[in-house]
């Protein structure tokens, strides 16, 4: 193979990739944080005594888990605006789709976590006169949050990768910038390899922390 590697154009164009990285992070962290908050609410709704809360929450979770993320992204950019009559920017559409998608997965983590708490814990709290809300806040959630951390970290890692799909909406994130550079300079090998490495460097620390966290939790219990 007589390929001449040429990284000089990366040296010149790295600000483009950095800007892309910044947009990736701007998509990733807010949609994770919002998805977590929304997911907590949805997870609690899934377990609510009232069917009027539990059923719609279940439907929501299933819709987002059983359709491809790619169609969700495209739907929120091209289809959703027709429904609501407001055009969203590609970034906003992507942020919305990723947040809602993440919230569905987080809801399942929350539901599973809460259901893993022995029934006696609810009863112990109830027997002391605590309301459902007090029992959840003081007794149940503090026990589950720790147990759910590894699952949430995994979700975060997954989400970081999924942000790359936003490139199909021309959100100028890392993947988009990489493809742009690669087709401008016809240097896919150098450029796409670099993009992959940047993703790796971004995501690996989270993955490493998650593994350590899991080991520490396992050791404690």
């Amino acid at each position: 193979m007589e390929y001449e590697w040429d990284f000089s154009l990366l040296a010149q164009n790295y600000p483009v990739l950095l800007r892309g990285l910044l947009v990736t992070v701007e998509l990733w962290l807010p949609s994770m944080a919002l998805g977590l908050a929304l997911g907590l609410g949805l997870g609690l709704a899934r377990l609510a005594g009232s069917r009027w809360l539990a059923r719609p929450a279940l439907l929501y979770v299933e819709l987002f888990r059983d359709t491809p993320v790619l169609i969700q992204l495209i739907w929120f950019f091209y289809a959703f605006p027709i429904l609501v009559g407001v055009q969203l920017s590609p970034f906003t559409a992507a942020l919305l789709a990723l947040t809602l998608n993440t919230s569905a997965y987080c809801a399942e983590i929350v539901r599973g976590g809460i259901q893993s708490v022995p029934k006696g814990q609810f009863e112990g709290a109830k027997a002391l006169g605590m309301s459902r809300h007090q029992a959840m806040r003081r007794i149940i959630l503090p026990q589950v949050v720790r147990r759910m951390l590894p699952a949430f970290t995994n979700r975060g890692i997954e989400l970081a990768k999924v942000t790359s799909l936003a490139s199909v909406l021309s959100v100028h994130e890392l993947m988009y910038q990489g493809r742009l550079l690669s087709s401008t300079y016809y240097r896919p090998l150098e450029i796409l390899t670099t993009v992959a490495i940047v993703y790796f460097v971004l995501i690996y620390p989270g993955s490493f922390l998650s593994a350590r966290l899991e080991r520490r939790l396992a050791a404690r219990s």
Binding site: Q121, G124, L128
Partner: peptide, 22 residues
């Protein structure tokens, strides 16, 4: 629920499985 919470304050219970908060 509110009434049951008030009743449970007045009627204490001890369970077979203790149900302490770990």
């Amino acid at each position: 629920e509110g009434e049951l919470c008030r009743v449970r304050r007045r009627v204490g219970m001890v369970f077979q499985q203790f149900n302490l908060f770990p």
